[in-house]
Design a protein around this nucleic acid. Structure first.
Lengths: 346, 346
DNA sequence: TTGTACGCGTTATCAG
DNA sequence: CTGATAACGCGTACAA
């Protein structure tokens, strides 16, 4: 009474299961009449092949696994939409797991997805991941993996990233052009790819404009902003400095909103006292007070490109030669949190 | 060379697969010594039972399917966190699908999840779903389903909802108390449960305060705000009225931010010209300009309760008597978009 | 205490 | 053109 199987059809039509199977797959070696009969009956009974059985049979699932730090984040949820749009069109299903910035959960999710026989993996590392052995082992076993955004610092993987250095450079240079000099950078843990790349752009921009890089203006948040107190502490430390920063450049969605919240709570005027810019995809930046300047990543595009590459890897591994790192351009959205255009009083 | 199976262990240890199977499940009828041998070898080889095979065997997957309109939405992503927290602890995995407010995709996702043998379903209906036949059929076949937020308007389902009427009443009454009289309501399609419940609370509050309900102040957005132009059109129509509203109450995350964006674009002063409140869980409402008043749903709690109920239904169907509708309290966060406290000039 | 055989749903192989 | 059988990985009834 549950779902109908090939066996049920065979019984009902007095055929063998293999004949039914072939008829359904439109095999050339089946009598057209038989074919019609089977097709019609299957249609009528609303037959659907059991993907579980198929997976078991040929260790393929037409499903791709996604492991990301968290969903409640504009960047990642836009990215998921990009992933889904491609996967859906190419007949793949998407299974999403959150690491919640925890290495253990990333590990557990990976194991589970693999045992679930996903055909490939799209991964953005948790902020606490330093060891990528589990992924390397999988790749050696032939599992296609494409990393995006937070990628391993090794050469032998496929990666889709934003041009973090450039984006960061533009943001920092922009702050400098608005007259800021003591620019703080609040960022994720040191060993993350995005951290060093964004730090690099920040640093280069400072140097190019004759500003000495001062390490005490850089704050690393171990949990990437997942823990609120981290943000507060970082900002508070900056504010308590003998020479507090006159601008803050936050390196991610979480860090940006967290940091801005602290500034607002402390009634600090943005950008007069402290200018503010974030590496963030938050959709409502223009509704903020003041409207928030931001470096925006092409999240949808990143998701799409990562998925295209992954499915290419799954279906045509031979045709992909070597490891590729695609680097996508960021966009700088300038708003009042850095320019401070006079707003109408309300 | 891929993953190791029970058969491999049996071969290596010169045992039968059944002995290995039983040893691994710690069966009482196995020689402790054999058991130890098997356990150790399995551990060493990093053996993991193949969930696909298990699923195929007993049509259970220890996975629950989630179908929601979209992920890139604070309410739903918080809700997912609630779902995951419970599921994870109880040993279930969560598979998430988005309907993107499309009935067809909701249908396709449902079919796929079912064929994937999920043990149960958590569903929030798309804004275009009027026909819930596909879910009813599943329930008749014994598939446990719990609806949340956007639930069917029938009695024979399990539901977890927020007290939409009450939340809506509080929001509307609050606007009235701030002196507003021509209060518009921008909402989702008519036939959604949340729409009628929220509309009901809005209407009752008006009446209780001696304000005549005027249908022309109510705008339904067919796609629930997914299509930007819809928002703009609705707001524009309101602004173009001979007596435009002096406050707007938006019924969801998307509608709220969309609506506010239009007001900002039109340089309308909030709340002096138009007061604004939203039924939204957006995490950064206090960063808005002006900080946004909101009716907040207990999203995390809703996710947890829905999941608890579902797993109860899966594991102990007998113990759940009849259909239950749990109704959770909302919270009213009052901020300047309705009270208009003077803000410091910046 | 251990081993054999079967079934879950499907397809590929081989035989007829 | 069609049918029987094995196999994917696992658990379990039944046999020894």
């Amino acid at each position: 009474m549950e779902t109908i199987t090939i066996k049920d059809i065979a019984k009902a039509l007095n055929l063998s299961t293999s004949t039914v199977s072939r008829a359904l797959r439109n095999s050339y070696e089946i009598n057209p009449e038989t074919k019609r009969l089977v097709m019609e009956y299957a249609e009528k009974m609303n037959y659907r092949p059991n993907p579980i059985a198929l997976s078991l049979k040929d260790s393929k699932s037409r499903a791709i696994g996604v492991i990301i730090p968290e969903i409640a984040n504009y960047f990642f949820s836009q990215l998921i939409n990009g992933i889904e749009s491609i996967a859906y069109n190419l007949g793949y299903h998407v299974v999403i797991f959150q690491s919640h910035e925890s290495f253990e959960r990333e590990l557990a999710n990976t194991h589970y997805l693999v045992s679930r026989k996903v055909d490939g993996l799209l991964v953005s590392l948790s902020s606490l991941t330093t060891d990528i052995n589990h992924f390397e082992e999988l790749m050696e076993k032939g599992m296609p993996i494409v990393f995006f955004d937070r990628v391993p610092q090794t050469d032998n993987t496929h990666k889709i990233i934003a041009d973090n250095f450039e984006g960061s450079y533009k943001a920092t240079a922009h702050l400098i052009e608005t007259g800021k000099r003591r620019i703080a950078h609040i960022t994720s843990p040191r060993y993350l790819s995005i951290t060093s790349e964004r730090l690099g752009g920040y640093r280069k921009a400072l140097e190019d404009h004759g500003i000495v890089y001062d390490e005490s203006y850089v704050k690393y948040c171990h949990h990437g902003g997942m823990v609120t107190s981290e943000n507060e502490e970082a900002v508070q430390q900056l504010l308590d400095m003998p020479e507090p920063p006159d601008a803050i450049f936050a390196a991610s969605d979480r860090l940006t909103t967290g940091c801005m919240a602290v500034l607002v709570k402390n009634k600090i005027r943005i950008p007069q006292e402290i200018g503010m810019i974030g590496f963030t995809n938050i959709a409502v930046a223009q509704l903020f007070n003041p409207p928030l300047s931001a470096v925006v990543q092409p999240a949808l595009d990143m998701g799409q490109q990562a998925t295209e590459l992954l499915i290419q890897l799954i279906e045509n591994p031979k045709r992909v030669s070597g490891f590729e790192t695609r680097c996508l351009q960021t966009r700088l959205d300038i708003r009042q949190s850095t320019t401070g255009e006079i707003k109408e009083e309300i």
